[in-house]
């Protein structure tokens, strides 16, 4: 991970021209972390929601916190935003405690089920949000960018799910924060709405903002994040670019025609985890498909019709998170 981080720092920093950055960088000093979590741990009652999470997110990076429901994503996000205090460990945002970063206006967020206040119109809501921040964007610009301008004169209470989403995105962006934290930002939104949302977010990320989002949609993490932090049962089970995670899960398989194959010998090949035989053809599930292929050709020169199928993120996800639907209560005390 260290090399990936270094690389991202060098690419992303020159792009940044934000007002806060002089201050932020001065505060950060040599340590260029945007968001840094060390041994974050949080329990609710007897349930340990997050058990010792470490990560470091560089300024300008877009990172997905991916995991099944109950994995600890929202708990982690609450601590990053200073909404809850870790039982153990610490988290810093641009080198300062989350509460200080929030107060400085460096942070914008979209929480789950954070609906706009009632008795206001959309434009008023976005104007109100802008008023909290030291260097807000122009309300009209943000309304247009997010497609919320058509809703500007609507009551916040009368919005459909997708419309409320647009208003919330506008509200999160209008403060012009350097870090955007999005907790399941597209939950309950239709496909079209999701596309629009990520379209806007792509633009935001391109401006060099740091974006952290929690999701349980694999496609979103795969398509939008520079890097995926995979969380299950309160722990990080993988951290890296989507390709690396797929590789790490080792879910590539090699299919070949090999009559009368000795299954035991195949299983003993380096890089092979499991073997299935269907008549003349065999399927090798590989932890390291490259090594498995080399040794397959060396040991069995008669092998034909060799096919390598790349693993999907979904396979990686299921493999790395174990039973993704395991109830969290069972994880107590781990």
């Amino acid at each position: 991970m260290t090399n990936v981080m270094g690389e991202l720092c060098t690419i992303s920093l020159p792009r940044k021209a934000s007002h806060v950055h002089d201050g932020v960088m001065a505060a950060v000093g040599v340590d260029m972390a945007g968001v840094k979590a060390i041994d974050l741990t949080k329990s609710y009652g007897s349930v340990q929601a997050v058990s010792g999470i470490d990560f470091s997110i560089a300024p300008g990076e877009t990172v997905a916190l991916l995991g099944p429901n109950g994995a600890g994503k929202s708990t982690t996000i609450d601590m990053v935003l200073g909404l809850s205090r870790p039982d153990r460990g610490s988290v810093s945002v641009f080198g300062v405690p989350p509460a200080s970063a929030v107060r400085a206006g460096w942070v914008g967020g979209m929480l789950q089920s954070g609906f706009p206040p009632d008795l206001l119109k959309v434009r008023e809501f976005v104007t109100l949000m802008a008023s909290y921040y030291p260097h807000p964007l122009r309300v009209d610009d943000v309304l247009r960018l997010t497609g919320a301008h058509e809703l500007a004169d609507r009551w916040t209470k009368k919005l459909s799910g997708g419309q409320a989403q647009r208003a919330r995105v506008a509200a999160a962006l209008v403060g012009n924060p350097d870090l955007l934290v999005l907790d399941e930002p597209t939950a309950g939104i239709d496909v079209e709405g999701r596309h629009e949302f990520w379209e806007v977010m792509r633009g935001v990320a391109a401006q060099g903002k740091t974006v952290i989002f929690a999701t349980h949609y694999l496609e979103e993490a795969d398509a939008f994040a520079d890097r995926i932090v995979l969380i299950a049962r309160g722990r990080i089970v993988a951290d890296g670019p989507a390709t690396e995670i797929k590789a790490k899960a080792g879910s590539r398989s090699v299919r070949a025609t090999l009559p009368h194959a000795d299954v035991e010998a195949l299983r003993a090949l380096p890089g092979v985890r499991a073997v299935e035989r269907h008549g003349d053809s065999v399927v090798l599930s590989c932890s390291d498909a490259d090594r498995a292929l080399a040794s397959l050709f060396a040991r069995f020169p008669e092998v034909r019709d060799v096919e390598v199928r790349g693993g999907t993120l979904e396979e990686a996800f299921l493999e790395l998170t174990g039973d993704g639907n395991a109830p969290r209560a069972e994880e107590t005390g781990r």
Binding site: G82, V102, A104, G105, Q112, P117
Partner: peptide, 14 residues
């Protein structure tokens, strides 16, 4: 109930 009170806490408003 609408989540606005929580949202306010992650703005610079004191």
């Amino acid at each position: 109930t609408r989540g606005w009170a929580r949202q306010l806490r992650i703005t610079p408003l004191r």
